[in-house]
């Protein structure tokens, strides 16, 4: 089922209730919201509402994070340089979340919100393949 405008509006309100004073997602508040929802479920569409809420939570979270994946070595200095340039670009503090991802083959892929910056070899190959089709 697809979320109706009404469900989206409710999910947005739930998200607002899940943020702390600084506008960041608060795990404590989010869990509270879910508890309240569980105790007073809407007549219908609970699943869709929860799903939409989760999507909003995640998308909000990713806006305040810099999710950095890398294959091979990524030294502290390079990481700091990348983070600084992203923070400058978005003009806000970003929390780095670093993971290793061998599927990239080599290089780095960074994600802030739904923007992706990718200089990995895997993406180069992918672009190459598409341009030669």
């Amino acid at each position: 089922m697809v979320a109706t405008p009404a469900i989206k509006a409710t999910a947005r309100r739930l998200l607002a209730l899940s943020l702390d004073e600084q506008g960041a997602v608060s795990a404590e508040r989010a869990l509270e919201v879910i508890k309240v929802l569980e105790a007073n479920p809407p007549k219908r569409g609970l699943r869709v509402l929860l799903k939409t809420y989760a999507t909003y939570l995640e998308s909000h979270l990713t806006k305040t994070q810099a999710r950095i994946e890398h294959a091979g070595n990524l030294d502290a200095a390079a990481l700091q340089e990348l983070l600084t340039s992203l923070e400058q670009r978005y003009n806000r503090k970003l929390e780095p979340v670093v993971t290793e991802n061998p599927a990239l083959i080599a290089g780095v892929r960074a994600r802030v919100g739904d923007d992706v910056f990718d200089n990995s070899f895997a993406s180069t190959l992918q672009t190459l393949r598409q341009s030669l089709q």
Binding site: M1, V2, A3, K51, T52, T55, R111, D114, D115, V116, F117, D118, N119, F121, S123, T124, T127, L128, S131, L132
Partner: peptide
Amino acid sequence: EIARVSSATQQANVGRITA
């Protein structure tokens, strides 16, 4: 072609299918 595509960082905007 390799030189061209590898020189630039690919920038994209992504999303996920919800339905």
